[in-house]
Design a protein around this nucleic acid. Structure first.
Lengths: 340, 340
DNA sequence: AAAAGTCACGAAATCGGTTTCGTGTTAACA
DNA sequence: TGTTAACACGAAACCGATTTCGTGACTTTT
């Protein structure tokens, strides 16, 4: 990189002190207008721009927000990023995005790097491996250091900080109830292993809806997908049971279910109804299009970043963690309809 | 944020100088092992971590790579990010991701902020508005400042820097030729306006394949989609023409085409074949699944970041811009087959 | 004419580290 | 015993900015 022009260069060139240059560039009243003009002209000519690092060090703030996500090639998370970015930008912040790739180790490392002064605060959705381990020390340390932290979507009670979540229980309930109201009684649930708590919560909603309708939950109708293995073959098993509907806790599971149903020659939504989660492009463009629970990722990101910036900029306040619950809603499309 | 522990704190507490602390922590031979032990123990106890900003300022390097993308909710771009992130991480770099949202103004601003010392280099895919304006001054200035820059996917000749692109002409050619070989002759092209150069290049490939097959290109079969208006209705028009195949330059256009074809009762792939671009989830999960050109976004990201880091770390070399062309390949699925 | 005030600028501290160069003490050598 | 080398540490410069405080030269007031 070319040697960038600094205040010192300007000072030397023009035979003044660095303080004079700094003041002149910030249009201080202490400097005579001739000197100001001279300095500003020189700065413009050589396209002087103050060094961010120096400013950040001096001001003890970076105006950068760190974001750690488990993955990115996923409609929900990319939507959240958009929300975060837009919210951050509005307040003059930039975002630094990293990925844990669902790995505990990478999450710990990334957290460590970012929390060493590179960012003013962090927005994180926890890696699945961490949820499985139940080892949250790295987050707890962060909170102890009083670095502003907002968790979203995948959160745990052990970490005392601000949180933004969707009403997963309610969403699972809504989805299941919709199927029940459509006359479905044998509803399969395609979910994640229980340690991914959003999956567990959605399952609670599913069970609640079934209980209310006096339907016994049947463990054989529940599939906990292990993403390390082939997804489709795991889901396929449940199709051997007698089912008339599928509730999948994400888009991919829903799309796979639909594909299997088609292969088996089942007509959708007549013989089998399918409902998904995350209102992404797959749900929208598949045919039939898939009824889903819209998670409002953009809103989540926006709320998370607003909460965080609030914390960053008003640190005097006594700290009382907030939890924002975003209600999700049902987007009815072609893959569900009342059974005739 | 809590007052973080610094070298100065440790020095004062232990009654030594800051230089001694610094050396002790870096395990310098200049310091006696007793002193080292004492200092290191203290540092561990209070969980001392050196401040990144200070180090970055001192070392004149940030180990951060800036990435500016036009959008993120898009399978191709999120895949590229993954590639960049993985490549960067491998070399000890972090990435700072920003979005231009296809806006010229935002691109200029973001570029300005990031290039003021916050990053060691930049990876950018140009915003469509910028491509339309043909105003690349902000990039040219960047190159003049000798800030390492790699452009990918959407690149222009006016900017002299390293580039990573897919062989768009070749890809368009391959896709079209595949349709022709399947006996299709009336092939619609759903593309972007011409200023988005990747669209223009893919079109060239399309035209080349047609010419080779002695098929006259028919302007009525070409749709230039304006994304500010409703996409579907624009594509719908071409279905009034007599066509037996569609080549769409991205996934969304392909999915829309498929939906329209279905609504019109055309059987896919018999009556009409459809081929897309970007091998994303939509293509994979729609039914029939869509034959597409795989862009290898991950590889692109990886190559781009490797090229960039090479530049950053070997700046003595004489500068001769490199252009890496990544060959794309055809992934044949259910939406195309020979006409009978 | 002496005291006070204004103007325009510079010296130096600061942010949190690293590193070069001294320097006082002790041990080893001639 | 005098010279030199090794050892262990500190002072100070540096990265690139900002900001407080001080100060010399002039002007104004009494």
């Amino acid at each position: 990189m070319k040697q960038k022009i600094t205040i010192k260069t300007i000072a030397k060139e023009l035979g003044v002190s660095t303080s004079t240059v700094s003041k002149a560039l910030r249009d201080s009243h202490e400097i005579s207008s001739e000197t100001k003009d001279k300095i500003q002209a020189y700065a413009n000519l050589y396209n002087y721009k103050p060094n961010n690092l120096a400013l950040q060090l001096r001001n003890q703030k970076t105006k950068v927000i760190g974001v750690i996500l488990p993955k990115i090639v996923h409609h929900f998370f990319s939507t959240v990023i958009m929300g975060i970015e837009e919210g951050a930008n509005k307040k003059g912040y930039n975002i630094m995005v990293c990925f844990s790739n669902e790995s505990y180790k990478k999450e710990v490392e990334t957290l460590k790097v970012l929390s060493n002064g590179s960012v003013d605060g962090l927005i994180v959705s926890i890696a699945s491996e961490t949820l499985e381990n139940k080892d949250f020390k790295h987050f707890i340390d962060l909170v102890a250091e009083e670095i502003p932290l907002v968790l979203f979507d995948r959160v745990v009670d052990e970490i005392l900080c601000d949180k933004v979540v969707v009403d997963d229980v309610g969403a699972g309930y809504k989805a299941t109830k919709h199927l029940i109201e459509n006359g479905r009684k044998k509803i399969a649930l395609i979910t994640t292993p229980n340690h991914v708590n959003v999956g567990a919560l959605r399952r609670q909603g599913y069970e609640k809806a079934l209980i209310e309708a006096y339907i016994k939950t049947d463990k054989n109708l529940i599939v906990e997908v292990d993403e390390k293995k082939d997804i489709k073959s795991q889901i396929e098993k449940v199709f051997k049971e007698d089912i008339d509907a599928v509730f999948a806790v994400n888009e991919i599971y829903a799309a796979n279910s639909m594909r299997i149903a088609k292969e088996k020659g089942l007509s959708i939504p007549n013989e089998i109804s399918i409902i998904g989660f995350t209102d992404g492009l797959i749900s929208e463009y598949s045919s039939p299009s898939i009824t889903t629970i819209a998670q409002h990722g953009f809103t989540m990101g926006m709320q998370a970043v607003e909460l965080l910036i609030e914390r960053i900029e008003n640190e005097t306040e006594i700290y009382r963690p907030k939890k924002i619950v975003i209600s999700s809603d049902l987007k009815i499309r072609e893959s569900t309809k009342p059974s005739s």
